[in-house]
Design a protein around this nucleic acid. Sequence first.
DNA 1: GGTGAAAAACGGGCGTG
DNA 2: CACGCCCGTTTTTCACC
Lengths: 159, 159
Amino acid sequence: MAKLEYSLDQIDLQILRIMQDNARTNNADIARELGMAPSAILERVKKLEQKDVILQYNARINPAALDQKMLSFIFIKTQDIIGVQKVGLLLAEIPDVLEVHDIAGEDGYLIKVRTNDSAGLVDLMRNTLSKVEGIISTRTTIVLETVKEDNKLVIPTKE
Amino acid sequence: MAKLEYSLDQIDLQILRIMQDNARTNNADIARELGMAPSAILERVKKLEQKDVILQYNARINPAALDQKMLSFIFIKTQDIIGVQKVGLLLAEIPDVLEVHDIAGEDGYLIKVRTNDSAGLVDLMRNTLSKVEGIISTRTTIVLETVKEDNKLVIPTKE
DNA sequence: GGTGAAAAACGGGCGTG
DNA sequence: CACGCCCGTTTTTCACC
């Protein structure tokens, strides 16, 4: 994972705000919007990438277009010793598992899973999750409809 | 939200695979990789955007860089009538709320929240959530550590 | 500011319904 | 014929040094 703090000034924050909204925005466009030279922006963006402030540029794809209609959250209770994420790492390798969080309390992990339909979910639990060593039990929450899922961070105006 | 199905061929899927991994990949690079002319790729990408297959291009920003160390999931029990997302829409307007899911069962909603620290979480619950009409109760799950959070969909090889 | 490269916009060819 | 898909070409714009 990413290391430490990196001091961001007001301009960096503005760049992040633009890039978070549209990762394909030109250097030139950013420069125009901020009233700076394109080269200066380029330099800053490269540094933000290099310092792991910008982790990646992703295209967010419509799950419906890929026929992935089903979204679920599964709480997973494990035998993992605290601080050792054996099960967590195994869960992270499963493609349909989009997120894996180590959570407080006895549950162990909370994972976010996308499948084609309910049959796909059953399939995942029967054929994949059941083969992961160290899982004691699971509790599944089905999502009926997603109201918001942009995962955009709040970028402060003043730091 | 996005409408309906759109027939994707093998080339579209390859483009999506590339774009999901790196949204800033050149048309020229994609063209080279797929052995096609850049203009053909451009045409397809535009169509994928227009058809809402590609929803957005996001820069994924390191939460630690913005000092957002705290991640939580909150189950929210509401008085919402089934199918009417009054509370859900209100929750979606809160900036720190990254995701809002209407879930099956009596809970109502599951939301994903990022705050600076535990004080920020308390603050959100006391000052913002408490002011949302229709919330009966909440149950909060704290994330100790995130193992995976790329939200990348599984793109099929054959459809 | 300059150079090489890529994006955007246009037209044309080709196969299919 | 009309349509969808792909390919050149040209012009404009951008990335990078």
